[in-house]
Design a protein around this nucleic acid. Structure first.
Length: 417
RNA sequence: CGGGGUGUAGUACACCGGUAGUAUACGCGGUUUGGGACCGUGAGAACAGGGUUCGAUUCCCUGCACCCCGACCA
């Protein structure tokens, strides 16, 4: 994409109405636009990041048997009354509205009811199980206080997968696969080394749920990390008994603030019972389906990556989710050589943002490249050509290297793999 | 929802009970051309309502918006 065609502009200064680093940088770079507190529109650059994260999550969900679908945002009252979650006294984050007829509706704040309701139409025998539908969806929560930019919004985008199994054993097999898939996701989006599977409160059907907590001062949760075991314990369940059960030495743990970037949860029959979501077993008996839920906040993940991986110059995108792999910067009036490089990169399937803006100084282009955070910066100018080609620099490198023009493609491919 | 703070050009900030200023961004002209370069010039602003006052952007009240702390986060 040509930067001259990108309608967004970078801003030199932080917005006065954002304190959170992730929101400041994303707004300054033109990745998002704030509509109101806790509500952001995703601009072209931000959309490319979101798109890549979605692709990664989709791949991992498909790999463990997930089947993608789409549940509706508008939800009818009846489904939620079955589980006693319609009343504002029980759930205080509802956004509700009405049809012209007067019927009440709600905007999805989660998906259990929607999926249970759908599954009821298709489950009748143990032979129908298990299955694992999931979707990406805008979720609405009327939070009393949104905060921290993209980390806690009133409208956000998530992936929710639900497992429908015949019993605990079948459920557990998938649950373990899901754990691994989640590890894969966080590793692939570049925050694996900061993210710990964390034991948290479990509810009726399992002692623990598992959260994926990414270490960050911007986080709302406090966790205790056992580095050796590679696990953590959420403060909400932290006590001597839990420590003993998990075999964690109290003297070897670190207390950290963390962002809950994902969670997986055994639901058991909590939802299948009120929906009478049963199947017939081999003996013809009605048995409630054993459910599990698996969520990842996509927009929260974007904020988390920025929160963790940025530096004082701007954002540092991991190559896997960067809007573009290469930020091609043309300096000087004669951009013909840069144009050729741009075409060549495109022809080789390398995603490139081409700073072809006329009359913008070198310093400004460099500052923008740092702020926008593409993994590789390639400068083509009179000087670089005199020096033997293009200057290639990784976002976090301090020095660039000269690469002959005819070797740029192979060099880029080698660096990003 | 409790507490605290803030609302002024697109953005970030000043000042002031009596003509609202600077930077940046933007338009135009020119000089520049490797880390947000420079000169000239132009356009552009007081959250809303009420009150006090000769006069309110400034002081007071109410509302609204935004930020932060806490509570909440099934």
């Amino acid at each position: 994409m040509r930067q001259s065609q990108l309608f967004t502009r970078t801003k030199r200064e932080n917005p006065s109405d954002e304190e959170a680093k992730n929101a400041q940088l994303l707004i300054r770079g033109g990745f998002i636009h704030k509509e109101m507190a806790g509500v952001y529109s995703i601009l072209p650059l931000g959309y490319r990041v979101m798109d890549k994260i979605i692709a990664i999550v989709k791949e991992e969900m498909d790999a463990i048997g997930g089947v993608q679908m789409k549940t509706s945002a508008l939800q009818n009252k009846e489904s939620w009354e079955k589980t006693n979650r319609w009343s504002d006294d029980v759930v205080d984050v509802w956004f509700k509205t009405k049809l012209q007829s007067g019927s009440e509706l709600g905007l999805s704040f989660t998906n259990e009811e929607a999926y249970s309701n759908i599954a009821k139409n298709f489950v009748s025998s143990y032979k129908d199980l298990p299955f694992y539908p999931y979707d990406f969806k805008t979720i609405f929560r009327n939070e009393t206080r949104s905060k921290s930019g993209m980390l806690r919004g009133r409208e956000f985008y998530w992936k929710a997968l639900y497992s429908f199994s015949k019993d605990l054993a079948q459920h557990n097999m998938f649950y373990e696969k899901a754990k691994q898939a989640y590890h894969n996701v966080f590793k692939r989006v570049g925050i694996g080394e900061y993210t710990y599977i964390t034991f948290a409160s479990g509810g009726t059907f399992s002692k623990y749920s598992h959260e994926f907590q990414t270490i960050s001062e911007a986080g709302e949760d406090t966790i205790y990390i056992d580095e050796e075991k590679g696990i953590a314990i959420n403060k909400e369940v932290f006590n001597d008994e839990v420590l003993a059960e998990l075999g964690v030495d109290k003297n070897k743990i670190m207390e950290k603030k963390a962002i809950e970037t994902g969670n997986i949860f055994s639901l058991g029959s909590k939802f299948s019972e009120p929906f009478e979501l049963n199947y017939k077993n081999e003996n013809g008996e009605d048995i409630p389906v054993f459910m599990g839920s698996y969520g990842i906040g996509i927009t929260r993940l974007i904020g988390t990556v920025v929160e963790i991986l940025s530096d004082d110059k701007g954002i540092v995108w991991p190559a896997s989710i960067a809007p573009f792999t290469v930020h091609l910067v043309a300096l000087g009036e004669d951009m013909s050589e840069a144009e050729d490089v741009y075409k060549e990169l495109n022809n080789n399937g390398i995603e490139v943002l081409f700073d072809d803006r006329v009359g913008v100084t070198a310093g400004e282009k460099f500052a923008d490249a740092d702020l926008l955070g593409m993994p590789l910066r390639v400068v083509v100018s009179k000087r670089s050509l005199e020096n033997g080609g293009a200057e290639v620099k990784g976002r976090t490198d301090s020095e660039s290297v000269i690469v002959p023009v005819n070797e740029i493609i192979s060099h880029v491919k080698k660096v990003i793999q």
